[in-house]
Nucleic acid binder design. Structure first.
Lengths: 349, 349
DNA sequence: CTGTTAGCGCATTCAC
DNA sequence: GTGAATGCGCTAACAG
């Protein structure tokens, strides 16, 4: 049972397909009011729905915006997705979603899939990786991107440019991860802690590396010596897994009369860490301070309230599509350090 | 700068477009191995990417799966979305995402948009509303759905069927909200509480109503008298807003030597409620018990650990696309009551 | 202002 | 096994 076509509507209204097309869609040519009404009535009575594929083919613009995320169930990405979805709707576009497990190889495939659909714009929210073993895939991703752009596509990256060469046509919604982490380091460096530790993701994860680096700079600004760095998975379980090691270090430090503050490079890791520490018999902030990054909405009611860095996630998503579509220029978003109870020692309580 | 077309590849390889099509896509006809290689080489060197729009038009199958959710940033929906995305990928489909603010009117528009794109299947994860004022929109949604189905589309609903008539062609991934809530009521009814309260969403929200209803049945099963019902928004802020009223009731009950247990019909409301109660100076579970529903992953580390009902969210998403695509038959998912610390009184501690 | 004619890029009958 | 022809549904020049 095939769908109703424009031709059928036209015949039913006693006009040509061209005329029907003109009235049913916003064209320059304005058909006579009387004839227009007849067409609209025919379309209505037949239950006509335009075939978006055919429209896209004919006018070579798909009305689609592609979004690639690592994991849509991760609140960081789902918040961005909300912004993308909202902006897309306002621009009369529909969102195509692809979740990769992370990594440039899969991202390249996503870009290819979006290119095949002739998406008007692509937003990549996944994190960049500059590990040597990803170099080839990054290169391939860049090539795929270049091809997409050459064919008239638009692209915006959330966070940071691609490692290596960056096609200037690719817009970037910059997230000042380093600067914000630095500010966080400075602030926490001013608190009454003695030792600092960073629980980071694996090396080569740009976001993780920049946050780590910035935090160290901030500590230095505050006249502190560098934090030790522990590497683990960039998610909740990674934080949880790091707990035993951190606990041991904290206890040792404690015995020496020193207080420890841990910076987990994202909120989910921080939450996992706190959970793991709880199992180790340590409590935050009584036994140590813990800070995160992102200010995930779902975790706002978490106790102890988590010191973190707020990022305008939804806004970042909006900006990305508007920038990609040419309705806004590439910008750097602003975030802010939010000190909460998780880094307040007993003295503050 | 137009994209490379199949025709160009064919010419480059010195074959006809038909042959090129046959080798570049899985066709019945198997071109000669030698000629096939030539075509593949040409495609590769030209950077050919098939135009999915054109393919869709020609073979009238889009390779698209539409997903409609209320709010992609809500962890309930984003978990489902992960399942949908994963299953879609396995079935070589791409996900089209539309977020509605909830309500059948917007859902109808979403279905129309998906129908226009000729999606192979549509998954609706948003919650049903059977308020009288939504009756007309529900009717329109049903009609839109019928039209989509008549045109060869497939649809799966997560949760419950549409209010009113339900086209049998619409598959439903049933979520036993009532039964699970009943089980929860039964279990909590067996705990040492005296009064029960349900913090529900507005009336007419099917999910909320069924959970409320089931919980009441469970209490009755346990020989308890019905819980009072408070209506508020179906989200975190709704739970938060309900806190003052609940706090007052709890205090009154407490003065009479009675212990209260509150069932918030979803986890986010429960978390908001707990946060609000904290501001009121009440602590859980010391001063009252609180339970939720859904077992949102991001909230697993929340303290006090929340008594809730676990739902296989990701699995529900997977099942929905597989069922819609015809690779699985409509089924009822299974959940389970998870008693945690938030409903354990001091006696248990 | 309306109707006619061509494609958009591809898959798929048919002939060969 | 391969190529030529046709049509998917629609829009955009063209004429009229």
């Amino acid at each position: 049972m095939p769908a109703v076509t424009l031709t059928e509507v036209a015949r039913r209204a006693g006009v040509s397909p061209a005329t029907a097309s003109r009235v049913l869609n916003g064209s320059e040519r304005k058909p006579a009011a009387e004839i227009a009404e007849r067409v609209r009535a025919a379309a209505e009575s037949l239950g006509y729905i335009p075939n978006a594929q055919a429209q896209a083919l004919a006018r070579s613009s798909s009305g689609l915006v592609g979004l690639v995320v690592n994991d849509i169930a991760d609140p960081y990405f789902s918040s961005i997705a909300r912004g993308v979805q909202a902006a897309a709707r306002e621009h009369l576009r529909t969102v195509l979603l692809i979740g990769t497990a992370g990594g440039p190889a899969e991202e390249r495939r996503a870009v290819e899939a979006f290119a095949a659909r002739r998406t008007d714009a692509i937003v990549i929210a996944g994190s960049r990786s500059d590990r040597p073993q990803d170099a080839a895939d990054n290169e391939a991703l860049s090539r795929e991107t270049a091809r997409y752009l050459a064919n008239g596509g638009h692209m915006a990256l959330i966070g940071h440019p691609f490692p290596g060469d960056q096609d200037p046509a690719v817009r970037v919604i910059s997230v000042p991860n380093r600067d914000l982490a630095r500010e966080l380091g400075r602030r926490l460096g001013g608190e009454p802690f003695d030792d600092y530790v960073v629980v980071a993701g694996r090396g080569g994860l740009v976001t993780s590396d920049l946050r780590t680096e910035g935090f160290q700079q901030g500590l230095a600004d505050a006249g502190r010596s560098p934090a030790g760095v522990v590497r683990t998975d960039f998610d909740r379980d990674g934080g949880f897994a790091a707990a035993p090691g951190i606990a041991a270090a904290v206890r040792t430090a404690h015995d020496a009369g020193r207080r420890t503050c841990v910076f987990a490079v994202n909120d989910r890791m921080a939450i996992g860490l706190v959970a793991g520490l709880r199992e180790e018999g340590l409590r935050v902030p009584r036994d140590l301070g813990v800070a995160g990054f992102d200010d995930i909405e779902t975790l706002r009611d978490f106790r102890p309230a988590l010191t973190t860095v707020r990022l305008p996630l939804e806004e970042m998503g909006r900006l990305a599509v508007e920038t990609a579509l040419g309705d806004a220029s590439p910008a750097e978003v602003t975030g802010s350090v939010v000190l909460r109870r998780s880094t307040q020692g007993p003295a503050h309580t």
